[in-house]
Every structure is written in C-alpha cells, then in structure tokens.
Amino acid sequence: MRPFYVGSWLIRCKDTGFADFSKEPAFAWMTRLSDEVKSNIQKSQVLFCNGYGFDELPAGLISSALEYAVEVGTSVFFDPGPKGKSLAVGTREEQDALAKLLRFSDVLLLTSEEAESMTGLRNPIAAGKELLSKGVRTKWVIIKMGSKGSVLITRSGISCAPSFKVNVMDTVGCGDSFVAAIAYGYIHNMPLVHTLTIANAVGAATATGVGAGRNVANLQKVMSLMREANLNDDDDFWSKLFDEKSNEDDITILSKTSVNGFKNDCLNHVNFQKVVTEVLHKLEVPLANEILSS
C-alpha cells in the first residue's frame, strides 16, 4: 500500500492505505478538488483534518472536501488544535469552514483547553457534551487531557481511560498517533474504552521516542507498554471531573480495581487487565503479519 501525498490531511484508504495531502507548504491557488483527490476521499474510510490544514489549503477547499466526504459516506475526523481559536475569529470563509467541521464531522478531537476555547465551558465533560449537542453528524467527541488520560463522549454515555505512565522524551507526533489509534478503533467497531486504551497507549509510546515520521511508536512498543500496565490511576481527579450533572449519564471508566472507590457512585468500572487482554488479542494478528512481512 503506497502513500498518496497531496496536502495536510490524513486519509485512511480502503485500498491505498494512508494518504496525506501535504507536499508543499501552501496551495492558495487550488480552488476545487481534483478528480484524483475526490477518488481518494471516496475510497477512504476516514478523512482527517486538523486546524493547521488551514495554513496550507484555502478554507473553501477544506469545506469542499468535507462536503464531498459527507456526500460519498466517508467519515470525517476533525482536530482544531491550537489553530481553532484563531479560526473562530478569522476570515468569514475560515469561520464558516470551522463551523461546518464542528457540525458535520463524525468525530471531534480536542484537548480540554481547546474544548473550553470552543465552548466557554471549563469542565471538559460539559464542553464535550455541548459540542456533541451542536453536531449534526457528530458521533464521538474526544477530550484529551494529557497525563490524566482521555474521555470519549457519545449521545448514549461517557467512556474514560487514564493515561499510561512513561518517561516522556518528545511529544512531537503524539497527537497524530493518538488520532490514528482512534481511527483504528472506530473503523473496527471496537468498544469505546478499548479504543481509548489503544489510543492512550499509542500516544504514550510515541512520547518515549524522539521526533515524528518513522520514529512514532510501532506496534510492538505499544503492546509492550500495555503489558507493563503502568496506569496513571488518579481517583481524586476523576471524582472531581464528574459533577452532579454527570449523575444522569452512563459513565464507564477503565480501572485497575473493580471496587468503586469514587465519590460518584454512577461509574461503571471496567477491569484494565480484561481490556488489555482483549486488545492484545485483537492486535496479535497485525503484529504477526508485520513480523512475517519484515
């Protein structure tokens, strides 16, 4: 599967693997999607855009890619990143494209700070629920909380997974690695807590290396990290995160303990070892194929 490069978007293709629209720094002259780009979007399972794409592609073209993906049934992932704040007060075209991405993406990914910037709500759960409620196609809103872990919010409930403790060398590439793992779970219809567990592990494993590109975490490193089971359990943090309003939600949290130690008694604990066993079983086949092909 050969990569296809045309800009700053990452596409998980059904037939051609990963495609990334980014070879040159700016494409201001591009006014419409080429047939080649349309073909790759149509063959893809996920079209990913982040806020930095606006530095390379015209906002109108990004809107066109979104609209075409929706038309052909390709799922759209959007991570506004730090750029989201400036896009919200940018040109009319940028504001319109940002609004469309927030409403019509299937999956939104933001840090807790970015979610607060987009909604004005400090509590990441409340901010995520606000973004979800305003979405037309939005199925998942994922809030990344750094060393604490991540939260995945849907219309039917909330899933949470603490992060893995690692010796951080470089955070370059962690965000993109995290998104790729989320896309893997999404495409394979994995349970939500399992998807977050893989994503946290991939992001953490990438942080133990230096640089992005070929230096991001490989599958063997991710699996090794999960087996080590060095989870950053922080009961106080999760207890404070869920306020009174969360009592109405179905909340699932990954935990090393099956005993509920939280003040909030509406949490459904999922045993970490059980999840890891199931995730590792899922990943063993790709690993075997990787070893055989090397």
Rank of each mutant, 00 (worst) to 15 (best):
M1T: 14
R2T: 15
R2L: 14
F4T: 15
Y5L: 14
Y5C: 09
Y5S: 13
G7R: 04
G7Q: 07
W9H: 15
R12Q: 05
K14A: 14
G17T: 03
F18C: 05
A19W: 11
F21C: 06
K23M: 15
F27T: 06
R32P: 02
S34P: 08
E36W: 04
V37F: 09
K38R: 15
S44T: 02
S44A: 12
Q45D: 08
V46I: 15
V46W: 06
G53V: 08
F54V: 03
D55Q: 14
L57P: 03
L57V: 06
G60K: 11
A65F: 12
E67M: 09
E67F: 11
E67K: 14
Y68L: 06
V72N: 09
T74K: 04
T74N: 00
T74G: 02
F77Y: 09
F77I: 00
F78V: 03
F78P: 01
D79N: 13
P80H: 05
K83G: 01
G84A: 00
A88I: 10
E94T: 04
Q95S: 03
Q95K: 15
D96V: 14
L102E: 02
R103T: 07
S105R: 02
D106Y: 07
S112C: 11
E113F: 10
E113N: 13
M118S: 05
T119I: 07
G120Q: 05
R122V: 12
R122E: 10
N123A: 04
A126N: 12
A126R: 15
A126I: 14
G128H: 06
K129L: 14
K129C: 09
E130L: 07
L132A: 04
K134T: 08
V136T: 12
R137P: 02
R137C: 10
T138P: 06
W140A: 07
V141Q: 06
S147K: 15
S147V: 13
K148C: 08
R155F: 05
G157C: 07
S159L: 06
F164P: 02
V166A: 08
V166Q: 06
T171P: 12
G173M: 08
D176L: 04
F178R: 01
A180E: 05
Y184K: 04
Y186T: 03
Y186L: 03
Y186P: 03
I187W: 02
H188R: 07
M190C: 02
P191I: 00
P191W: 01
P191E: 05
L192P: 11
A199V: 01
N200Y: 05
V202F: 13
G203D: 02
A204G: 00
T208E: 13
T208C: 11
V210H: 11
G211E: 03
G211T: 02
R214W: 07
V216N: 05
V216R: 12
V216L: 13
A217V: 01
L219C: 03
V222R: 08
M226S: 01
M226E: 00
R227F: 10
N230C: 05
K240Q: 11
L241R: 00
L241S: 01
L241M: 12
F242S: 00
S246E: 11
L254W: 00
S255L: 05
K256H: 11
V259A: 12
C266L: 07
N271Y: 08
F272K: 03
K274A: 09
V276G: 02
L280Y: 01
L280H: 00
V285E: 14
L287I: 08
A288P: 04
L292F: 12
S293G: 06
S293A: 11
S293I: 13
